[in-house]
Design a protein around this nucleic acid. Sequence first.
DNA 1: ATTCTCACA
DNA 2: TGTGAGTA
Length: 130
Amino acid sequence: MNDDTRRNQPLFPISIVMKLTELSARQIRYYEEHELINPARTDGNRRMFSFNDVDKLLEIKSLIEQGVNLAGIKRVFELNQQAVSLLKNEVKNEQVSDAAIHRRLKRDLMHAGRLGKTSLIQGELSRFFH
DNA sequence: ATTCTCACA
DNA sequence: TGTGAGTA
C-alpha cells in the first residue's frame, strides 16, 4: 500500500474532522455540496474522511479566511490539479533527471507556499519523495 | 450518543 | 451559516 492509498483511506467521522479543522459540521457538509471535497460514505450513509480530505478542509478554511469564495477555491483546486498532472507526466515519461525533478518540485512547492496551497501539493505529490 | 437531510420565527 | 426537527 503506497502513501497515496494511505492518505485516501476513509478513517474519521465528521466529529473528529470538526475538531481537527475547527470547522462546523454545517460548513463541512456545505463544502461537500459544492464539490470541494468528496468524503466516502459508510453503509449507514455516514461520512468518512481521509487525511487528504482533512488537508483539503484546512486549505479551504485558510482560503476562506483570506476572502476567497467557494468558486475561487474550486478554481485554485483545479489549477493545483493541473499542475500535479503535468508533474506526474514528466516523471512518468522520464523526460527529466531525478535531480531536475527535485529541483522543479522544490521550486514549485516554494511558489505554492506563497499562495498558501503547500499542503495540497505535498499531499498529492507525497509518493515522489520516497 | 451520533450523524443525516431538510427547512427557515 | 446557525439551528431545530425527525430519522436511521
